[in-house]
Design a protein around this nucleic acid. Structure first.
Lengths: 120, 120
DNA sequence: TGAACATATGAACAGTTATTCATATATAGA
DNA sequence: TCTATATATGAATAACTGTTCATATGTTCA
């Protein structure tokens, strides 16, 4: 019950494949960043915001009204989206307008939708 | 301080835009499913598993060895990936081999990477 | 300057999630 | 049948996350 610290109790089964795959894997850091990016997409509030901004530039209050959520909640999420460099903003007096800051968002959404609709 | 239940304290600023965007938004349910899908991508362990399986079919023990993680942790995550219809498996004796079950994974990854690398 | 308002932000809380641990299931071989 | 082994799974825990609430910041206008 304490024979190997490696993986499961047994030895590796297919050592060649493991080494082969290991060579093809991107650097740990890249994969981490990729997961962090998708984590940002993994919330329906943020998905809605991105979708809305893909249709039109909007101010915080408008987004809150559109999604029927508090101004604070939206503001917090916009900060997350901005840190991920997915949205940008411009200020006009008191009002802050947000818009998409990425060309890939739409394509990522489309691929995601393609998966969801697949086989139905 | 209690004038409107809507969004923030004020009235909606750009009502036309809101209605216009509202019409363009996909159904609530679709956006929820989309977020659920990306949530699955939003974990570096699962990202690594998917990347590995994109390179080669592998059994549970091999994946655990490759990622230097416990068999149990990998098995739990494979279940999540299978529920999301991102991987499939086949049994050969005691050994269960997992492989990708989706054509979009690679493209979603590529778009994600494109975003990460953008502007550097 | 002061009131009104749009937005941002910190703390707190509830809900979620990834891993570990122990154990169950299933299969192969003796 | 008994043992070894590959995988699955339920419970528990620690860490993380989204929203709310209260409040701060910054801008306009009177």
């Amino acid at each position: 019950m304490n024979k190997k610290l490696e993986c499961c109790d047994s030895n590796v089964i297919h050592e060649e494949i493991i080494n082969q795959v290991k060579d093809k894997m991107p650097k740990e850091e890249i994969l981490y960043d990729l997961a962090e990016l998708f984590k940002v997409f993994g919330d329906s509030t943020r998905i809605k915001i991105l979708w809305a901004l893909d249709a039109s530039e909007m101010c915080v209050c408008d987004i809150a009204a559109l999604l029927n959520m508090s101004q604070s909640a939206i503001s917090h999420q916009l900060r997350v989206l901005k840190q991920a460099k997915l949205v940008k903003n411009r200020k006009e007096g008191k009002v802050v307008y947000y818009s998409l800051d990425d060309d890939h968002v739409r394509q990522i959404f489309d691929q995601g939708l393609a998966h969801i609709y697949e086989g139905w």
